[in-house]
Deep mutational scan, measured.
Amino acid sequence: MLYVKVKTEDGEELVLEVEGMTEDEIREELAKAGFKIEEIEVYEVEP
């Protein structure tokens, strides 16, 4: 499983499960949803 931890400019932290997306695609999708991203951390969790 691939997850991203996202910190927004307003200090909110989100953890999202993503599969088959690049970091650029993740940033693009979050921007479309109205999030202003300060930091993204991508990590993989073994089942």
Rank of each mutant, 00 (worst) to 15 (best):
M1Q: 07
M1T: 12
M1A: 09
M1D: 02
M1E: 02
M1I: 12
L2E: 01
L2H: 10
L2G: 05
Y3G: 02
K5L: 07
V6F: 13
V6H: 01
K7H: 08
T8S: 05
E9A: 14
E9L: 11
E9D: 08
E9R: 12
D10Y: 09
D10H: 09
D10G: 08
D10F: 09
G11H: 02
G11N: 03
G11M: 02
E12R: 14
E12W: 14
E13L: 11
E13N: 05
V15A: 03
V15I: 13
V15E: 05
V15Y: 13
V15P: 00
V15R: 06
L16E: 00
L16W: 12
L16F: 14
L16R: 02
E17M: 15
E17V: 15
E17Y: 15
V18T: 03
V18E: 00
V18Y: 14
E19S: 14
E19Y: 15
E19T: 15
E19A: 11
E19N: 12
E19H: 14
E19P: 06
G20L: 05
G20H: 06
G20F: 09
G20A: 06
M21I: 06
M21T: 07
T22G: 04
T22S: 09
T22K: 04
E23S: 08
E23H: 07
D24G: 08
D24E: 12
D24W: 14
E25T: 05
E25D: 06
E25L: 05
I26V: 06
I26T: 01
I26M: 04
I26Q: 01
I26R: 00
R27M: 08
R27D: 00
R27A: 03
R27L: 10
R27Q: 03
E28S: 10
E29W: 15
E29K: 12
L30K: 00
L30N: 00
A31F: 11
A31Y: 11
A31P: 02
A31I: 12
A31M: 12
K32Y: 06
K32C: 11
A33E: 04
A33D: 02
G34A: 02
G34N: 02
K36W: 04
K36T: 06
K36A: 06
I37E: 05
I37T: 06
E38F: 14
E38K: 14
E39D: 12
E39G: 09
I40H: 01
I40L: 07
I40P: 01
I40D: 01
I40S: 02
I40G: 01
E41Y: 15
E41N: 08
V42C: 06
Y43C: 08
Y43T: 06
Y43Q: 03
E44R: 13
E44P: 08
E44D: 11
E44L: 12
E44Q: 12
V45F: 12
E46S: 10
P47C: 10
P47S: 09
P47Y: 09
